[in-house]
Design a binder for these strands. Structure first.
Lengths: 123, 123
DNA sequence: AAGGCTTACGCAATTCGTAAGCATG
DNA sequence: CATGCTTACGAATTGCGTAAGCCTT
């Protein structure tokens, strides 16, 4: 399949003048060191002290929240939560990181409001 | 399928005590009003003045960049680029929005560096 | 047992690159 | 006719919810 053996027109693909494309299909999701959604979830867990509560707050299943936290921890190479009885307890690293993360999320929220207004103003 | 008609154990799924889950599979991608990757691409197009150049800079195909810009415009309800001969020209809205967007991206870059240091320090 | 956290599994949805079309110079 | 932008298409990957397991109270 996909042969299309005939049709030998020299149709230019892209780019004609330089190196061909480096990789074949880069999935983009969560590639950037920073995933805002995960950061928001992280803060929700910190604030509520529970995966279940954070899940409800963010509109996810607890499984999704658990996965997001796991992803963040692996990404950072740091342990952010430890099991504490039936619940979890944030590490001191988590609390420290949360301060900075909250600054960013606040900034993002401001930007989100700006964007909404910007769009609404000229429509 | 998925019936499992027998096996009538009252296996708790989740959550047992409250309303069932609101939606069935929310894809998260680009759901948050802000997509940092798209914002970076937008700025790259502004700075280079060309979709092709921005694509090269960002490591995407021109098609991908074109789609990302289209997505952003639809999202914002604003036209950011107009065809200008064989190239494109940013609207005044684009230039205005770019100022604010750049602030955010800069802030995110700072956070990215912080995160790297944070992770590296305790490993 | 019941409540809370985590992993396995299947699925839906997204986004990418390639291909192809259209317009401009 | 070469360059640049955009859309259609198929492929690949992700990230979700559900299901199920483990551990604590």
């Amino acid at each position: 399949m996909l042969l299309r053996t005939s049709d030998s027109r020299p149709r230019r693909t892209w780019p004609s003048t330089s190196t061909t494309w480096p990789r074949a299909t880069i999935p983009r999701s969560r590639a950037s060191m920073v995933d805002l959604g995960v950061l928001k979830t992280f803060l929700a867990v910190i604030d509520s002290g529970s995966v279940v509560a954070a899940a409800r707050e963010r509109g996810y299943s607890p499984a999704a929240v658990s996965r997001q936290i796991g992803w963040l921890q692996r990404r950072m190479g740091v342990r952010f939560f430890e099991p504490d009885g039936r619940s979890i307890r944030p590490t001191s690293d988590a609390l420290e990181f949360a301060v900075r993360a909250r600054e960013l999320v606040d900034e993002v929220n401001r930007f989100e409001r700006y964007s909404s207004r910007f769009g609404a103003a000229r429509r």
